[in-house]
């Protein structure tokens, strides 16, 4: 068996109506790693995951998942994967046990195995007490954990998780992360999408940053952060910030002025660079009103690559989710 469990080559999806959600992505996921797709909402993460899991037909390109082509051999792929979609895919009128039982049956797990495995898996995600509770009484976090447990019934080679902690409170998130980490220890390959940079940073071995349907960077969290080149200094001055920023750029530092006037400067070593920057400001008689430096986060990487903050995109995403919720309520 190959080293790679997922190999996507130039996957593209154009939806009816002409929206090109994924504009050709290629990447490979190694066996046993946690691989993350990080990007804002609407970047094409869910569509890519849909194509890899055979529920969305690619417009062009190929993907080999667990050794089989997703368009030519979808059933073989389905037999080797577990999927937790972004929106719950459960039957709320049934109990946790019934949902898992049906899932097991349609994945070909023998009934005798199911009798043993369902309580085991529910125990792993801390839901054994609510085994016979109908899911309409479950919280969002409980449903997420149940869905992860359910996706493991057929002992898949790859587990796909689409935004596994979206909409969960911090405690529920921590519990889901714990479950995902324990899966890695068991040797399960995990492919997840997320728009939370801390989630990608803490969980993933490797990350692809995706924006507007394209992968714009790929690597380990450390590799990605080193793209930014050391530390980032944020400084805000009163007065002619633009020429100040230009003079800093002339000294060979990558400088960027953010939408709110904050100047972001990428430096190798902030403590050494700071005095020089402050002296330059003093020479220009600019009053410094704010200065701080950070070790780069994945958000800085995203900013570095796109000029936009992932956080800005995130609030957009939340508005969209809120709209979705309202629509759903209204039905």
């Amino acid at each position: 068996m190959g080293e790679y469990v997922i190999e996507a080559r130039d996957l593209r999806k154009v939806y009816p109506g002409g929206i090109e959600a994924v504009k050709g992505v290629s990447f490979r996921v190694r066996r046993g790693e946690i691989y993350g797709f990080l990007g804002p909402n609407g970047a094409g993460k869910t569509t890519t995951l849909g194509m890899l899991t055979t529920v969305i037909k690619p417009t062009s390109g190929t993907a080999i998942v667990a050794g089989y082509d997703v368009t030519r051999n979808p059933v073989e792929v389905r037999a080797r994967i577990g999927v937790v979609f972004q929106d719950p895919t459960i039957d709320r009128d049934l109990t946790a046990w019934q949902n898992m039982y049906i899932h097991g049956l349609i994945h070909g797990v023998p009934r005798s195995v199911l009798e043993k495995r369902i309580p085991e898996l529910l125990r792993m995600v801390g839901l054994e007490k609510f085994m016979h509770t109908r899911l309409r009484y479950y919280s969002g976090g409980m449903i997420r954990r149940l869905e992860i447990a359910r996706a493991l019934i057929n002992t898949p080679e790859v587990l796909f998780l689409d935004e596994p902690t979206i909409g969960l409170d911090p405690q529920a998130r921590a519990k889901v992360w714990e479950v995902i980490r324990s899966l890695k220890k068991q040797g399960v390959t995990v492919f997840l999408t997320t728009h939370y940079m801390d989630e990608a940073d803490k969980l993933c071995d490797r990350i692809a940053i995706i924006d507007h349907g394209r992968i714009i960077a790929e690597g380990t969290p450390e590799e990605l952060k080193s793209m930014v080149g050391g530390d980032i200094i944020y400084i805000r001055v009163v007065g002619d910030g633009a020429s100040f920023a230009r003079s800093l750029a002339e000294r060979g530092w990558k400088t960027r002025t953010l939408s709110d006037g904050l100047i972001a400067i990428s430096v190798r070593d902030a403590p050494r660079a700071l005095p020089e920057i402050m002296m330059e400001a003093a020479r220009r008689r600019l009053q410094i009103v704010e200065v701080r430096y950070v070790r780069p986060s994945l958000d800085d990487v995203f900013l570095h690559l796109t000029g936009r903050s992932l956080r800005d995109s995130e609030t957009e995403g939340w508005k969209e989710i809120a709209r979705m919720m309202v629509r759903r309520r209204m039905r």
Binding site: T53, T54, V55, V75, E76, R78, A79, I81, V83, F85, D87, P88, T89, I90, D91, R92, H103, I106, H107, G108, R331
Partner: peptide, 14 residues
């Protein structure tokens, strides 16, 4: 389809 369960079925190897 509305409540997502269709995906649960479609992604099964059945």
């Amino acid at each position: 389809r509305e409540f997502g369960y269709l995906k649960e079925i479609l992604v099964a190897p059945a």
